[in-house]
Design a protein around this nucleic acid. Structure first.
Lengths: 342, 342
DNA sequence: CCGAATTTTGAATACGTATTCAAAATAGAT
DNA sequence: ATCTATTTTGAATACGTATTCAAAATTCGG
């Protein structure tokens, strides 16, 4: 005896052909109702919709995309999804793309540079675009994408020669403003606990920060590159503070790094901000939590995602559009980890 | 003048037909090479692979799925992606599914119960299965999925009548063991700051916890339902501790809740664990951070995801398989937020 | 070297839709 | 009622692949 119940596992989903038959029209007309909604008489439209409802018909996305050459799918490749900043990014991307009918194919990567093999599957699935967060695309990957007519956009990174659009927070400007603020608060000796060296993020921030220091003729800047993790921040701060006690202020490459820095500092006996000031970057939600009233730079998250999606759509609709690089501003959020020094 | 550069936007991707022509064979043979790898002579295979490489040919997933009736796509609907526990879950799902050739379509939802309209798009795209984390499927949605032959699996939830597979941590057992541990540590008055009431998660834990208390003839248990957020935990603890100072221990529905609880408690002047003990649930990575040395229940994350994927594949390959509900154990992780009371 | 068994191959077809083109139906003007 | 302009319709086709079926090529045993 077969398994009971009404569900018949052999039954195929209803097709537009089935609907057409039930409604007494041609398949073409059914298609018109579900595609453009082009000219079709009210009478038949109603019949078709009724038939479709009865059969629980829904258009087949694969068949449709075969003919329209639009898959309505976008790939997203993320590093660091465990960082709350990027969890939020993902959520917002979905919130923006879903109403437009786009599906989001999620991919994880550990790599600083996304290579061809990592996008191969997305190519087979003919995504219309690829969003890459916190990482770069290799030259090979970029070339392949371009040749396949697939739009790609870097989120929170940019690269000069790469011929690839990007949306990011203007780290140069941000670092300048942060540095200015810190100097005006009376700080003179600095450390920068950053993310990986040679990424645009780190380079730009360093440049902006150093520029201000140079103008003010301040020389004390220790640079410690690492990764964007709590552990990295913790370790770096521990080393820094035990070997050199004369740091006024630590500028961190991300909030998560800053949390590690704060915990390490406190563990070594430093009070924040009395003994050492700390500044973060991102303004993640956690900073509302009491142990971490971190002064930080807020990235305009929502706007960055909005711009990215706009750019994406624009390039999808005009494959000849030249790549654009959009820098967004952000703002300093002052909480309680920077002291006023006399 | 048109935009310069070699990329020709009108160029279509190479098809198996193109490859066939270049290699001097039939389209069918090309297909055989890329599909099953079925019988095809070494000589021709080589020719075909060379031609394919030259044309940068890759099979078209949509066309393929049309004929094979396998889309190699799985949908995942997540609540609470901002909770680090679930960020980790997502990452692991991708890590498990990618090597199997499955693409993961990410969806976000705020809802406790996923309704039909939220899965409609996934149905159009013919995903082979849907994973739902931390939420339930409505009856309508479940019925629709079943009728469309789409597998669905609840992750970290379960429901009796729903005829839907589930993988979750055995909350009943966990709560029992936690309660036993707490009682043996000398605690007598308890609060349970939980997630939403009426979810299996909360119900099971409450049942297990209460059972132990009943056995030991302990009556003091205050129950405060909320959501799985820091803010909810913070607020609940604040209320609880200002109105009733005689709580030995607070059992929290998730680690994130517990972090809010701890911060609130400290703010009100309670030391942890000297004045009040706190226990969490999940064992998120953040617990390695110094301010939060939380004793908690570790969910066997990796194993849970592994089981979910196994179940998924099994049901995809045998649509008649009866739904299974798998409860996994986990273990108590003792850190430093529960005191030994005399 | 021959016949049988086996492997390899290509022509044809199906998957489910959108679109083109010409025919049919309708509306509109007189 | 007649003729024209417009709207609505269906037959046919294309999208790019996997698979079936029968024919062609190869291998094998003696």
């Amino acid at each position: 005896m077969k398994s009971a119940g009404k569900s018949n596992p052999e039954k195929r989903n209803a097709t537009s052909e089935d609907v057409a038959q039930l409604a007494g029209v041609s398949q073409a007309t059914v298609s018109r109702v579900f595609a453009g909604g082009a000219n079709v008489s009210e009478k038949k439209r109603k019949k078709i919709l009724d038939a479709a409802a009865e059969l629980e018909y829904k258009p087949n996305a694969q068949a449709r995309s075969l003919i329209t050459r639009k898959t309505m799918m976008v790939g997203i490749i993320m590093r660091n999804i465990k960082d709350p900043f990027y969890s939020a990014v993902l959520e917002i991307f979905h919130t923006r793309l879903a109403p437009l009918g786009y599906q989001l194919i999620f991919n994880n990567s550990e790599n600083e540079i996304i290579e061809e093999w990592e996008i191969a599957k997305l190519l087979e699935f003919n995504v219309e675009g690829i969003i890459v967060t916190d990482a770069l695309l290799s030259e090979g990957a970029t070339r392949k994408l371009k040749r396949s007519g697939i739009v790609s956009i870097l989120f929170n990174r940019h690269a000069e020669g790469l011929n690839c659009s990007a949306v990011y927070c203007d780290n140069y400007l941000a670092a300048q403003q942060i540095a200015t603020y810190l100097v005006e608060m009376g700080h003179r000796t600095f450390a920068f606990i950053s993310g990986p060296r040679n990424t645009s993020t780190t380079v730009d921030r360093l440049k902006g920060f150093q520029e201000v220091l140079r103008e003010r003729n301040i020389k004390e800047l220790t640079i410690i590159p690492g990764t964007y993790t709590y552990e990295s921040g913790f370790k770096s701060a521990q080393e820094l503070l035990t070997r050199n006690k004369k740091i006024d202020c630590i500028f961190c490459g991300s909030d998560i790094i800053a949390l590690g820095v704060m915990d390490a500092a406190r563990l070594v006996g430093f009070r924040i901000p009395e003994d050492v000031s700390v500044v973060g970057f991102d303004n993640i939600r956690m900073l509302g939590w009491t142990p971490y009233p971190l002064t930080t730079w807020e990235q305009p998250l929502e706007e960055m995602v909005t711009s990215t999606v706009e750019l994406l759509l624009k390039e999808i609709n005009d494959k000849n559009a030249a790549p654009r690089i959009i820098a967004m501003k952000g703002r300093l959020v002052i909480r309680n980890t920077v002291r006023k020094k006399k």
